[in-house]
Design a protein around this nucleic acid. Sequence first.
DNA 1: ATGAAAGCGCTAACAG
DNA 2: CTGTTAGCGCTTTCAT
Lengths: 333, 333
Amino acid sequence: MGITTKDLAQLCGVSRTTVHRALHGGGRIHPDTKEMILHMAKEYDYQPDLLARGLVKGRTYYIGVVVLDVQNRYFSGMLNTISREASKRGYYINITLHDGDQQQERDQLTRLAAYHMDGIILSSVNEGEAYREFLNSLGMPIVSVDNKIADGIPFVSIDQRQAMAEAVQLVLEKGYERIVFVCPAMQTKGAQNIYVHQERRKGFEEARKGHPQVEVQYLLDWSYLDHIEGLTRDAKRTAFLCTADDFALEIMKQMREKGKNPPVDYGIVGFDNIDTLKYISPKLVTISNSVDRVSAAAVNLLFQLIEGKREACGQENTMCEILPFELMEGETI
Amino acid sequence: MGITTKDLAQLCGVSRTTVHRALHGGGRIHPDTKEMILHMAKEYDYQPDLLARGLVKGRTYYIGVVVLDVQNRYFSGMLNTISREASKRGYYINITLHDGDQQQERDQLTRLAAYHMDGIILSSVNEGEAYREFLNSLGMPIVSVDNKIADGIPFVSIDQRQAMAEAVQLVLEKGYERIVFVCPAMQTKGAQNIYVHQERRKGFEEARKGHPQVEVQYLLDWSYLDHIEGLTRDAKRTAFLCTADDFALEIMKQMREKGKNPPVDYGIVGFDNIDTLKYISPKLVTISNSVDRVSAAAVNLLFQLIEGKREACGQENTMCEILPFELMEGETI
DNA sequence: ATGAAAGCGCTAACAG
DNA sequence: CTGTTAGCGCTTTCAT
């Protein structure tokens, strides 16, 4: 393709080592030689071969990012933040998708390791001890976002349970008599990042305990849209509590077609605060997952691991960061 | 990190070449030796170093994708399609963002070239002869999406002009008396993929020619939202023709706050058919950019260039594909 | 101040 | 059927 250091050396009548010194400033080199070499380098548009450099240096200044899907608003926000944070530090990112497939996630990770990524940010659909072993075997710094994979794997997240509990609190304060908990994601084990949904559900269960007078219904599979209307036919004031904004949007869309809208006909709360919401009316009550902050924190943590060589996968002290969330006001409750 | 072929050779008491043969099946090798080596490879979880392989083979089975931003619905759709199409063929993608910055785009491309990507899919904010030179100097197959960069650079797109012309036709048929052409993207040269907007504008100009009785207004800068209301105060039936759905959504949002909604108070048409629209009511009339088809075609074209070695950057015959678009029915006109 | 030589891990051409 | 050798392009150590 382009010109190599060998070619440059020949053109300048010096050795490759000298060329290297001119380009990187190591050791003593005569100013004139240096200038001449740099001039030639520019002249012939020398570009270092990054594969070769990576091979010998053992680092590539790349961080690998493995997520489910770029089309998901949540992930695309994350990728933007990660990309910018990384490039501030002179790193680039290599984005790959696992599409919710557990094996694909493993494959992507081994490939990224084989390409000598300096670190990994991972939104996993795997978990457990065996997977921890696997991750450790890759021998590279890894930070998990949202998902607690296993003890010893650093992760960054918000307090999902607490967030959901506050949502429940809000709904109860408004006097709703029936809560429908919507979480179809749990059905497809492995095809979603189910950990966060599990946590949200736990938060829900804890919060409802103190309020036995409130009726609770669950919609836990992908046919949830078929049951929405039946649940809003009687006089009981009903609120839908969804573990993701997407579910809430689908419900609102379907109800609107029947001429029913929140907060008059029913109440509804989402989760994540995806930015599609800014175009939606009425404004959905939701919880901001603070994707920017979570992503930025993940990058920071990863760089500590990479550069400070802070025990990447220490068994004892799981490094994790729990960040604040925010209950977003809206018009649907 | 892991084990190398050298280690394996030592462990098995053979040469590295034999190990290589066992793993890749070239040449004659004794079945027993092969089995033994493969067994050992599994045992010690051998993973080839992809940097080293790329260095020697000159190919990485990676294609680089350079786009403005992942958060833009249009690009995220594109990335999903490209990723899936590529992995069907055993390739992976390396996604990088240029954030609308012309220099950053160049930098990303040179870096991707330095990493020996086998090909590039590019949504550019650059254009012209000088840039063509630059792209050619990279010496790798490149396909541009949407944007005709220069003669000789293959590209894939829909017929933007024709699409916009049809939108104009539709608006006129509905009897609107004033058309407001909304295209703030043109203002920030270099910060958007302005080529497509230019084309759309040309399509608009051509289509309006035959209809001098219709009043035409332009909103061509980012303060467009400030002028919306003034344009809908009189009795004239007004339609907004936007060069992107995002602009249309912003307008609808603002108007809704004033209690005005399409199609009663005004008409509005978007462009791109981003998938956020499915949650929006009333349903926006728009033009489907067929992002899936465009992306898939781009990947196909790129693979023809990569594998068939079809003249990557032939001056004479620009390889381009113009795909069909679709005018999407809706309720806002 | 400069150069020679070795090596990263893999592949490929040529011997035996 | 197997091994030896050379080389991808870069960095690094040790000599001069």
